[in-house]
């Protein structure tokens, strides 16, 4: 396994996530795709950490950053899901075509 394999996998993951966010109309699914993009970023960081290690040890800077991202993502999921639930309670839908009140 070379670095390129990991990066390609990560790129695919990111592209799928982005595509999901762009084309899906369900907020939950869009949210999941968003998480997928974060994971793709994490995968890249871990891959670089492995392959750019020194003296047999991985580069710990990147891994530290990964933990930060996971923590923030967890918090973000909590907030995001809460907003979606609140939204659903108010409008009985999570389909974004029905949620366009901020139109200019």
């Amino acid at each position: 396994m070379t670095l390129a394999n990991y990066l390609i996998a990560s790129g695919l993951l990111f592209a799928i996530g982005l595509l999901g966010v762009l084309v899906r109309r369900n907020l939950i699914i869009m949210f999941m795709c968003l998480e997928m993009m974060l994971s793709a970023g994490n995968l890249t960081l871990v891959a670089f950490s492995r392959f750019n290690g020194e003296a047999g040890l991985p580069n710990m800077h990147a891994q530290t950053l990964v933990f930060f991202i996971i923590t923030v993502a967890a918090a973000e999921v909590a907030v995001g899901l809460a907003i979606i639930v609140a939204l659903f309670r108010a409008r009985q839908t999570v389909h974004i075509n029905d949620i366009q009140v901020l139109k200019g």
Binding site: V21, L22, V23, R25, M30, I96, N97, I99, Q100, V101, L102, K103, G104
Partner: peptide, 14 residues
């Protein structure tokens, strides 16, 4: 510029 504020989330994302 009003056209830009379509209210469509995905349009914003793009």
């Amino acid at each position: 510029f009003r056209r830009v504020q379509s209210g469509n989330l995905q349009y914003y994302t793009i």
